[in-house]
Design a binder for these strands. Structure first.
Length: 720
DNA sequence: TGGGGATTT
């Protein structure tokens, strides 16, 4: 049998999307060579079989959810438009039912239905819920991929993943041809990943007319998404929620002429009493639990003390924040057998997005949150306590309307509420952009100021990001990516950390630095429960290094490896418990380390200077390598506890560090974050000469590089 | 003497 190129080309539309380009090129190049055309025909046949194998005609059932009633309308919008914006609050069923609606449309055969979530846990749980509703096992028709876990097979039609995974895939699948549909969920969270993806997708749409995109969001700033995608239609689905009564109880009360201020803590207590009173008057007994939003750990602790001391009958006070151990967090999610009264959960922003506290009937909102903001002027990351946006306050109050009618007390006035910004600033507007810029350079996305971001970052932030990349040697003075830059872009870690790895390969201390860098890119595995601070500190001191928080990580790693090889998994868990270590985070540390190790081997194959040796390295070799990523985080001791750093920054050592007591003359820090003061966290004693040795190729070229004048023995920052 | 929350080829 022989085929004409034209016959073959018409068959292409039946093929798997990811195969089409390759086969089309084969046909074009074949001209009339029958052998090649026959080969192309074979490939087409294989591809069509792949599609048919996935075509499933099982009837899909929809549970009774608000979105199910709107199925026809949604189906129509998806078939008629390339991009659809779907808004719906929690309980609308959008996350679980949308992929099923796509399947019903016959999508998911010629390519995957890709569905992104901001968090790994969500990707996994959503995947198993959809698999269950489709009566299939996880990894078959419905799969998921998150960092370290891949449960996707040849038969997978719906793939749940974190948005970070999809972003990473753009590196080897430029036009995301694996996918027939992309669902970007929780777009309103506007994380760096989501904003980058929304820009990237907008760019590839003209080249992928067969791709369907659905942006889903809470009912927040919908027109913005619609406008970004050429006025894509918006469909709003109601959530299954109950009305929430919002009461304003400002801390500043006007009494005649005088303004009387109440302390936030007293305001919280008064609000709790008001809610409990209300229940008592209704005489129906406890109706549900109270969730209180506060900005941080210290405020939570203070409020917890106050509420426990107050004479409240049968209440259970439970703090909730991310640094809490799993056991402590579980108290919030599992109601103990003996508990009968009202639970009062005191929480940071974790409960606004990442976690759902069950059984909440009342919310008390201080209207405050700690927000990370990077200042391009002082080149410092800050964590100020700020008034939250209207959208954020509404998200918080929405947390009490999920089981029945709820009541939310806001500890600020209605006037205050309406004077606040409508939406929370997107992360891209308040963060250092070095990592984003490096990714864009390695993807060859062209001029960053031309990239179609939903919220384009300020030019000053872009310039500042380039400056850091220059300091790291990742770009040259013309802003072109260097060899180091290419290597950094392969490492899934912060560019500063990546720079340490590259330097370490040249200083023969990759073993130590890989351990350190993987520790720095996860959450600290050491636990410090509030009621066992002394006990945990004692255990943590066992492997502490007196001059370096970094080498403390290496000591812990070595100690743990010994235990891990000697003990069973169960014994290892007990070991963690006894030594105040988080078993999960220790595993995360090892997984990260393994991943980085594999990538280093790949880099080594292309770079003969990249050396890996197993002998223990010296203090100097390790810290010189770390310093390559932390040049602007050095400091020289001043009077008292103060240090002078680059750009005349004055900072203090974080008191939790072992190095704090020694207070060495010269230090470097993994992080400088301004809270009540500018604190250096994760620190080590260094010799300033190391920076000079490292410096020559960096120091002179750079804008604000600190250099060290020995005679004056002080840090001088230069600006050209 | 003290710091919100996520994520990655």
């Amino acid at each position: 049998m022989s085929f004409t190129p034209r016959q073959l080309n018409t068959l292409l539309s039946e093929c798997r999307i990811a195969d089409r380009f390759k086969i089309r090129r084969m046909i074009d190049r074949a001209r009339k060579d029958e052998k090649i055309l026959a080969h192309a025909a074979e490939k087409i046949d294989e591809s069509i079989q792949w599609v048919e194998k996935r075509t499933n005609r099982d009837e899909i059932h929809y549970p009774d959810l608000p979105i199910s009633a709107r199925r026809d309308e949604i189906t129509k919008a998806i078939s008629e438009n390339q991009v659809v914006v779907l808004a719906g609050e929690t309980g609308s069923g959008k996350t679980t039912q949308l992929p099923k609606i796509c399947l019903d449309l016959g999508l998911g055969c010629k390519g995957l239905i890709g569905h992104t979530q901001p968090r790994r846990l969500a990707a996994r749980t959503v995947a198993s819920r959809i698999a269950e509703e489709l009566n299939t096992t996880l990894g078959d028709r419905v799969g998921y991929q998150v960092r370290f876990h891949d449960q996707v097979s040849d038969t997978t039609q719906v793939k749940l993943m974190t948005d970070g995974i999809l972003l990473a895939e753009t590196k080897h699948d430029r036009f995301l041809e694996q996918y027939e549909v992309l669902i970007i969920d929780e777009a309103h969270e506007r994380s760096l990943n989501i904003d980058f993806l929304l820009g990237y997708i907008k760019r590839i749409l003209p080249k992928r007319p067969d791709l369907k995109v659905i942006i889903t969001s809470a009912t927040i700033d919908l027109e913005r998404f619609s406008k970004h995608f050429n006025d894509a239609p918006i469909i709003e689905v109601s959530g299954r929620t109950y009305p929430v009564d919002v009461l304003y109880r400002p801390l500043h009360e006007l009494e005649g002429e005088d303004e009387k201020a109440i302390d936030m803590q007293q305001g919280i207590l008064a609000a709790v009493e008001e809610l409990l009173d209300m229940e008592r008057k209704q005489g129906r007994g406890p109706q549900g639990d109270i969730l209180i939003f506060l900005p941080g750990e210290s405020e939570i602790r203070e409020a917890a003390d106050l509420l426990r001391k107050a004479d409240l009958k049968s209440v259970d006070v439970l703090p909730l924040y991310a640094r809490l151990s799993l056991a402590e967090q579980n108290r919030v999610f599992q109601r103990g057998k003996g508990s009968v009264g009202t639970r009062i959960v005191l929480s940071t922003n974790v409960a606004e997005t990442s976690l759902t506290v069950p059984g909440i009937k009342y919310v008390i909102d201080t209207g405050l949150a700690r927000v990370s903001r990077y200042s391009y002027r002082s080149k410092v990351q800050r964590l100020p306590v700020e008034a939250i946006s209207q959208a954020s306050a509404n998200q918080r109050s929405g947390r009490c309307g999920r089981v029945s009618e709820g009541t939310c007390i806001r500890l600020f006035s209605e006037e205050d509420f309406f004077s606040r910004p409508e939406f929370t600033d997107a992360e891209i507007r308040r963060t250092n952009l070095a990592a984003v810029i490096l990714q864009m350079l390695s993807l060859k996305l062209g001029d960053i100021s031309e990239f179609p971001f939903v919220d384009p970052p300020d030019n000053r932030y872009i310039n500042d990001g380039f400056k850091l990349l220059q300091e790291l040697g990742a770009v040259d003075s013309k802003r072109h990516i260097t060899r180091i830059g290419w290597q950094l872009s392969k490492l899934p870690i912060d560019p500063r950390l990546g720079r340490m790895v590259i330097e370490a390969s040249r200083n023969n201390c990759l073993r130590e630095v890989l351990i350190i860098v993987s520790a720095l890119s996860i959450q600290d595995p050491r636990e410090r429960p509030q009621d066992k601070r002394q006990a945990s500190d004692e255990k943590h001191r066992l492997y502490a290094h007196e001059e370096s928080d970094f080498l403390t990580f290496v000591n812990l790693w070595d100690l743990y490896e010994e235990q891990r090889q000697a003990l069973s998994q169960n014994q290892l868990r007990k070991y963690c418990l006894k030594n105040f270590l988080s078993y999960m985070r220790m595993r995360e540390w090892r997984d990260t380390h393994r991943q980085l190790h594999i990538i280093c081997k790949e880099i080594k194959e292309q770079d003969s200077k990249f050396i890996e040796r197993e002998e223990p390295a010296s203090y100097e070799a390790v810290h010189r390598s770390l310093l390559a990523g932390l040049l602007s985080h050095m400091g020289f001791k001043q009077e008292g506890k103060e240090y002078l750093g680059a750009r005349n920054r004055r900072f203090f050592l974080f008191p939790g560090s072992i190095v704090y007591k020694k207070a060495p003359k010269w230090v470097m820090a993994a992080e400088l974050v301004e809270t009540s003061q500018l604190y250096a966290r994760c620190i080590a004693k260094v010799d300033p000469v190391w920076a000079e040795k490292l410096g020559p190729h960096l120091v002179k070229k750079n804008y604000s590089e600190p250099h060290w004048e020995k005679k004056r023995s002080e840090v001088v920052a230069t600006e050209h």
